[in-house]
Design a protein around this nucleic acid. Sequence first.
RNA 1: GCCCCGUUGGUCUAACGGUGAGGAUAGCGGGCUUUCAAUCCGCUGAUGAGGGUUCGAUUCCCUCACGGGGUGCCA
Length: 543
Amino acid sequence: MNESLAIPHLSAVTHQALMSVRTRFAPSPTGYLHIGGVRTALFNWLLAKGAGGQFLLRIDDTDQQRNVEAALAPILHGFRWLGLEWDEGPEVDGPYAPYFQSQRSERYQAAVEKLLETGAAYRDFATTEELTAEREAAQAAGEPFRYSRKWMAETPEQATAFEAEGRQGVMRLKMPTEGTLEINDLVRGTVKFDWGREQDHVVQRADGSCLYHLATVVDDHDFKITHVVRAEEHLSNTPRQVFIAQALGYPLPEFAHVPYVAEPGSKNKLSKRKLEKYLKNRDFAALNNKGQQIAERLGLETSAETFNPVIVDFYEEVGFLPDAILNYLVLLGWSLDDSTEEFSREEMIQHFTLARVNKAPASFDAQKLLAFQQRAMNALPTKQKVARSVEFLKRAGLVSDPPPCDVAEYVTQIVEAAGDRITVFGDILEFDDFFTADDQLSYDEKAFGKRLVKPDDAAELLTAFRAKLADAKGFDAESLDKLLHDFVEQQGIKIGQIIHAIRVAVTGKAVGFGMFETLAILGQQRCLARIDRALKLLADAKG
RNA sequence: GCCCCGUUGGUCUAACGGUGAGGAUAGCGGGCUUUCAAUCCGCUGAUGAGGGUUCGAUUCCCUCACGGGGUGCCA
């Protein structure tokens, strides 16, 4: 063994340990997890996992909301459901706890004091009115606003004097007045800013509470974040954060500003507040309706504000597969090449790079999401499809809980016959006719009219076919296929003249999957019972 | 107003300065069929505008338009 082999190996390990990639996502506890936020979080997660590093969750609750815990729970739940586990953060903690900004005030206070000491910040006593006046004057003069620092207190004497006037002091950054800042953004490349255009931002209010920009810089440093990957709306905020970091003597993290996820069919940022507008988008509305229908069958108490395709909970309730959502989302702003579309979790981790993240926002496309879901669902083994479908059936009250012992077998037949008609697990509920008692089956009025009432020979044919069914020896799909075809030949009719009537009679619906599978699954007794009932209803209808 | 970022079919995207601008999804037409779905075959559809640089521009530069962000004691 020679040394030249051993040494590089060792140093590579050391290097990796030192340079361990740490990323974070910083949600505010708003009570729900936004799909656009998840996409940004996913990029962070992928970057960290791909480098063997850590992904952390930090809670931006500087606003001190009253019920942080309740508002945070759905967010954490959403991350877990998607399988975006965090290495450090709420509930799992970690070496740099606490991970809640509301609990880190002392850290921010210490930073403010240091900024003051080094002259990077100053106490300011301007009133809101005075600042507004300055702003308006600058605007009237057509000049960019820059605070005059008239009420800046650089000595304790000055501060005392201002306080004597009844003024309250805040802490402001003393920003450079000239020069340029160049940052090398991992997505956007070199971006230049003019220091002279930056404001003396407030970092601490009169009541001692600190603002976001200060807090985020301190936290990212404390948590040893190496890559700040966030939405592009923060790009313009970066200079002030760089200033704070440098003033505190922190090394700068890498920055990557990723585009936001846009509204369906537009380039506006996707927001939870404009749902009404999105519902005018056909595809978005279709997805939403699908969800609402499933929710209704499940008996969920939903409202448009808390249950819609912008919110991650929606997908869980309706029965999407997390991997399908991630696969769709990763392609919203990132691509590997000109043709690869399908990625497992591991493949995403393996291939993701910031260099191939797009600069332009990408619109949320409900149809394409559904297409990814469809594909993932088709690839799922029947056994898993059945297990999840049974859960949904139980929740909808269509099978009792605990289910009868043969439920899995029964549902397996349905799932297999349904094939790709099941896009999300909630779709199983559309086949409720397999789970209702024969004398409770409800008939679609339109279908009943068109296929049973209207054709003059419906009752006659159905009665004749019922007799055949009653005598049937085998009741599997293949035998039934033959049975019906023989019947049709005997009667000298086309199959279309009877098969729709049969479908409506036994399922109550105009559409469904293969007729023979349907009959076979229901079994002889139930088919006969349902046909009898349909014939009776038909007779009543014809009066 | 000023500063920063962006702009390829409806949508997501690909294209060392040299491709018939490729793929996906959607749409349309047709076949198959007992309905729906699926499937098969075929088709429509894009480089925001204008100037440069270049033998050659989606790609580089400038101007404009449009969209987004910042200019907050919001995050």
